[in-house]
Amino acid sequence: MKEENSRRSFFKRVAAAVGMVAAAAGTKTLISRSIDSNDGASEKYAADVAAQEKAVKANQLVVMTDEEKQQRIDDLLNFHRQEIA
């Protein structure tokens, strides 16, 4: 009777362990299926590039006057010095 009990409890333990491992594997498969998929990556990347094109089109380049150029250099150098300080 006791022997049978211990065998049964052993099988129970094995079954429980196998069940846990199977559950872990199943969960991992479910998660990784969505993570590993590259579906639509190219389209999403193309959309990013299109957004850049749109941003450039919406903007305009204007010529800087000599004063503006000097001002820009002065500003950049001042900001840099502030950052370093």
Binding site: R13, A17, M20, V21, A24
Partner: peptide, 25 residues
């Protein structure tokens, strides 16, 4: 006690096995 033993055994087995399963890919 039996129940706790089973739970502990199962958890230990899962802890040992899970990283192997997760890390397999």
């Amino acid at each position: 006690r039996d129940f706790l033993k089973h739970a502990l055994t199962s958890s230990a087995a899962a802890l040992v096995a899970a990283p192997a399963v997760v890390g397999a890919s």
